[in-house]
Design a protein around this nucleic acid. Structure first.
Lengths: 338, 338
DNA sequence: TTGTAAGCGTTATCAA
DNA sequence: TTGATAACGCTTACAA
């Protein structure tokens, strides 16, 4: 069992070389011959052997996607954008997570990549993660999504700007005591986005000459339970913030819950704004700075494909996509509830 | 560039055959020899060429995952379970979506699978989808997740039972006018789960001798906007249901929103129950019948691996995992709000 | 435009 | 336990 190129060649009355050329759509094949070959191949239900083709050509026809999480909104949404592009280009998509500390026995991504993919797409791994540097050292064409490292091609948003926009929105509403729910604690791995969003918040506050209490920052770990916890801490302050900028929508969801537990209403009592444009944000009436997450995946994949198909080592550049403020009822003028 | 097995053989002073055996951990290799080979390989930073290995051995070392969606909770959660298992076994995971109608130019999964994977994992594709039958016809070892088709090995929950549990919970609270938010409209592809959950609802209602108004069923397409729309329809009935069983949590989220838009409160005015155990359910206080989604992926992958490694064609059986009712504030005794 | 034939880097069979 | 060596099924100079 297993029709080979030889069978097709025989059936079409040509050499295997011609079959190979014809089926791959190369030029320099007589159209009649091509038709004959294609017919024969179809007749025999021939499928090329990827392993043989890869071995002979040196190209693998696959792209690896490396991500820290699969079942989180941002990551799965990026992934879906990547997938549709790759699939459309006939590329195989190899999915792989960075081995988190608890899964000790797993090989880290870098060794699993060598000799088996033409390109790599990395989704939002903290730039100082050694697993990321190992991957970059492989010197396989790579695009980053939601991170930047040196001059490696990447697709991101302007996180500083996004955070400024969010903070400024709160300022425009008259808020002065503006809290911040950020990611993980200092000393651990940080996302690029985290630094930048922090900076955007600080810049906007400074420009408006508003004070930044250290009491007004809490860590939500980019999860919704984390956000709930963080908001709870903020509410315990003597002087509560009247508005809070959350670095992600999921943390804002948690914050909303914390408000409710305290009998407070988002928007009326405390304004809440996030970043993401999460699926659930509309449902929960969360004001947010939307980023085009699906497109980020799509565009990064497209850029990678271009890089793979270009003869020259055309250094792909970094792409920054626009964000958009979407105002909903979780933000309102200060004192609106009094 | 590219260290080959020959280089290692030379460095270790053995034949390529011995290197191959030694590195794959086969028996019948002197331990001293093995050590020497391993050292040489490490020294040279040798990585086996998957294509060559695959071509020679006939095994691909990869498993395809086929799913209709990537960026939806159920699917990405299953996928993450699958990924961790596969990764742990050193298998490559090829991710692939079924080509939806709007992406015409994409090759459907079946042809993309031949000769390139050892096994296939299918996530919740409607059993009558021709793309699924095409995949099954390939006769590659396959496990289904969240669907059943004939005697193909599968991992599911007992959807009839889950729906009964949900409906019964509402009945126990004294509800009599119990609505249903189901999936897609008749005539289109249905998930297995959809039929079964419908049946569970009907059975529970019948047993309790409660009437089933056709007015009390609306379609939510398994999305949250769909659920909102469906709930809106139910609220337009002359006699509103006092409780609604939603076939998925996401539809229940939408239903919650519809309630709020009408000034109604989930639990107090209309009880709402879902199925899934979605991440956001706890946050939204949604009563639900939890299914072990991550485990479903993990277990299906494990079963597939066993099947792949067993010499015999040991027919894998189907596995049904337990569900669990989690009561939250979205359900309450009937009339509690009056 | 087509054919010949030498790889591509392993694995697996058979002997030794 | 080890080594020779023939596959594995394709791609790609190079020639014709």
């Amino acid at each position: 069992m297993g029709i080979t190129i030889r069978d097709v060649a025989q059936a079409a009355g040509v050499s295997t070389a011609t079959v190979s050329r014809a089926l791959r759509g190369l030029a320099n094949v007589d159209e009649q011959t091509r038709t004959r070959v294609e017919r024969a191949a179809a007749e025999l239900d021939y499928v090329i052997s990827p392993s043989a083709s890869r071995l002979a050509s040196g190209r693998t026809g696959s792209v690896a996607v490396i991500t820290p999480y699969i079942a989180r909104w941002f990551f799965s949404t990026v992934l879906s954008g990547v997938e549709s592009t790759l699939q459309g280009a006939g590329m195989d998509l190899l999915l792989m997570t960075v081995s988190n500390p608890d899964a000790q026995h797993r090989l880290p991504p870098a060794p699993r990549l060598r000799r088996r993919v033409d390109g790599v797409l990395v989704i939002a791994i903290p730039p100082d993660d050694p697993q990321l540097s190992d991957v970059l050292k492989l010197d396989i064409p790579t695009s980053l999504i939601g991170v930047t490292v040196g001059d490696v091609p990447s697709v991101t948003i302007d996180d500083v700007h996004a955070a400024r926009m969010a903070t400024q929105h709160l300022i425009n509403l008259g808020h002065q005591r503006i809290g911040l729910i950020s990611g993980s604690i200092a000393g651990r791995s940080h996302y690029t986005a985290e630094y930048d969003r922090h900076r955007g918040y600080v810049e906007a506050m400074n420009e408006a000459k508003l004070p930044i209490h250290s009491d007004f920052e809490a860590h939500g770990y980019f999860t919704s339970p984390g956000g709930e916890q963080a908001m709870t801490e903020l509410l315990a302050q003597r002087e509560r913030p009247t508005a809070v900028f959350c670095m992600s929508d999921e943390m804002a969801f948690g914050a909303m819950r914390a408000l409710r537990s305290h009998g407070l209403q988002p928007g009326r009592d405390v304004s809440l704004i996030g970043v993401d444009g999460h699926d659930m944000s509309e449902l929960l009436e969360l004001t947010t700075v939307e980023q085009p997450v699906h497109d980020m995946g799509r565009i990064a994949a497209e850029a990678l494909l271009v890089q793979l198909n270009s003869e020259v080592q055309a250094r792909a550049h970094s792409i920054v996509l626009p964000t958009r403020l979407v105002v909903r009822s979780s933000t309102a003028p200060v004192g609106g509830g009094e």
